[in-house]
Amino acid sequence: MTDLLSPLENKTMPEIVPGRRISGSVAGLFDARHGHFGTQATDKLELSFEGILGDYHAGLTRKSGGREPWYPRGTQMRNERQISLVAPDELDAIAGGLDIVEVKPEWIGANMVVEGIPFFSMLPPRTLLFFEGGVTLKVDGQASPCKFSGKAVAGHAGATDVAAMSLEFVRVAKRLRGLVAWVEKPGTIMSGEKVEARIPEQWYYPG
């Protein structure tokens, strides 16, 4: 019988880092119910498989944009960006990089602030977020900072050169802008809930 592993005999397989669990908590909740990406504080989020009920980013599908250059702009596709999550220490780091007092989550359209999980924006795709009340979110990946969010930050911060700060935000907020996720198991999330991040096995593809 042919040995199925023989083609790999002389190859070095990548190191596999085991999965693990890290606990945190929900420090703030926000929704966008006014037809714009900017959010406002709320004490709970009602989630269906489409995302946050009534939210600007809700939907099973969405239209492609600049993040998906492989499709014509406006192509209907799966909505993997239903929920935007950020961490308070990373928002503080962005504010420091921009030399302003603060960056509030609602300025950049965040739906949730999660504290207690270090390097939050670096949680890998496929990480599952299990909430105390029963909701599960699946991380799609990092949220890429954009000029629209930068313009909102510059406006709220009273920048003298809005265009310049908008571009600087894109640079400073890279790898700190948080995560986007979609609803795997719907329900209600309450402010103050505990959340557990279950990080999958990780490896670098060597090809």
Rank of each mutant, 00 (worst) to 15 (best):
M1T: 12
M1H: 15
M1N: 14
T2W: 10
L5I: 03
S6K: 09
E9I: 11
E9Q: 15
P14N: 06
E15Y: 08
V17K: 12
G19D: 01
R21G: 09
R21A: 15
G24R: 01
A27L: 09
G28A: 08
L29M: 07
A32D: 09
R33H: 04
G35W: 03
F37M: 10
F37P: 11
G38W: 11
T39P: 04
A41W: 09
T42K: 07
D43V: 09
D43M: 10
S48M: 02
I52M: 10
I52A: 02
L53W: 00
L53V: 15
G54K: 07
D55G: 09
Y56W: 15
Y56V: 10
Y56R: 13
H57P: 07
H57N: 10
H57S: 14
G59L: 08
R62M: 03
R62L: 02
K63N: 04
G65K: 05
G66R: 15
R67I: 09
P69T: 00
W70C: 03
R73E: 11
R73F: 02
R73P: 01
G74S: 12
T75V: 00
R78V: 07
E80Q: 14
E80M: 12
Q82A: 11
Q82G: 02
I83M: 07
I83L: 11
V86M: 01
V86S: 01
A87G: 10
A87M: 02
A87L: 04
P88W: 01
P88V: 04
P88K: 03
D89C: 04
D89F: 05
E90T: 10
E90Q: 12
L91C: 06
D92E: 15
D92G: 09
G97V: 03
L98M: 06
D99S: 15
D99E: 14
E102P: 02
E102Q: 14
K104I: 06
K104W: 08
E106Y: 15
I108S: 06
N111W: 03
G116S: 06
I117T: 07
P118T: 07
P118N: 00
P118F: 02
F119S: 13
F120A: 02
T127V: 02
L129D: 02
E132Q: 06
E132P: 00
D140W: 06
G141L: 00
F148P: 02
F148L: 12
S149N: 12
S149F: 08
G150F: 00
A152L: 11
A152E: 12
V153T: 10
A157F: 04
G158C: 07
A159Q: 02
A164Q: 05
M165F: 05
S166R: 00
V180W: 07
K185N: 09
G187Y: 10
I189Q: 01
S191F: 06
S191Y: 11
G192R: 08
K194Y: 08
K194W: 10
I199M: 08
P200V: 01
Y204R: 13
P206Q: 03
G207P: 01
